[in-house]
C-alpha cells in the first residue's frame, strides 16, 4: 500500500522533523549562534514604516524559546497565539502521512474558527499600527 507519493511525503517529513529538532537544540544550547542568525528585514516595514502581522515574530519565537513569555507577547502576540495551531497542524500532517487509519476527511474544524483566524490576522495587522495599541508593536 506504499505509494511513491506516500514514501516521498514520509521522507520529507522525517527530514523536516530532524532539521527542526537539531535547529531548536542548537538555538537553545548555543547563545553565540543566535547572533549569527540575521532575520530577514521586513520590506513592508522598510517601505511604509508600518508593521506587518509577522513583524517581531522571530524575536517572539526567540524570547519564547528562552522562556520569556511576557517579552514574547510584547514582540508579537499573534505569533505566540498561533504557535499551538502550528504545532497542531504539524502533528496533523504527521498523522496524515504515518497513521494509515487517519484520512484527510477526518480533519474537522468548525468553519467559524477558520474564518475567525483570517479576521484575527487582518485585525491584528490594523490595530498594531494604531497609537492606542502601541503595546502590540515590538520594542
Amino acid at each position: 500500500m506504499h505509494s511513491p507519493l506516500r514514501i516521498w511525503a514520509e521522507r520529507s517529513l522525517l527530514i523536516f522533523a530532524v532539521a527542526m529538532i537539531v535547529t531548536v537544540y542548537f538555538y537553545v544550547t548555543t547563545p553565540d549562534l543566535r547572533d549569527l542568525i540575521r532575520p530577514h528585514h521586513c520590506l513592508f516595514n522598510q517601505a511604509t514604516g508600518l508593521l506587518c502581522p509577522a513583524c517581531g515574530g522571530t524575536r517572539a519565537l526567540s524570547q519564547l524559546l528562552s522562556g520569556r513569555l511576557v517579552l514574547a507577547l510584547n514582540s508579537n502576540a499573534l505569533a505566540v497565539f498561533i504557535l499551538p495551531l502550528v504545532i497542531y497542524g504539524t502533528v496533523t500532517a504527521f498523522r496524515l502521512v504515518f497513521d494509515h487509519n487517519f484520512s484527510p476527511s477526518d480533519i474537522r474544524i468548525a468553519p467559524f474558527w477558520l474564518w475567525s483566524l483570517l479576521v484575527l490576522v487582518i485585525v491584528f495587522w490594523i490595530i498594531r499600527n494604531l497609537p492606542l495599541f502601541s503595546f502590540l508593536s515590538p520594542i
Partner: peptide, 20 residues
C-alpha cells in the same frame, strides 16, 4: 474544512509575500 484551510492559508500567504 480542508478547502477552507487551503483558502485561508492561500489568502494569508499572498498577503504576507512582501513582508515575509
Amino acid at each position: 474544512t480542508l478547502g477552507i484551510i487551503s483558502l485561508i492559508a492561500g489568502i494569508v500567504g499572498v498577503l504576507l509575500f512582501v513582508c515575509c
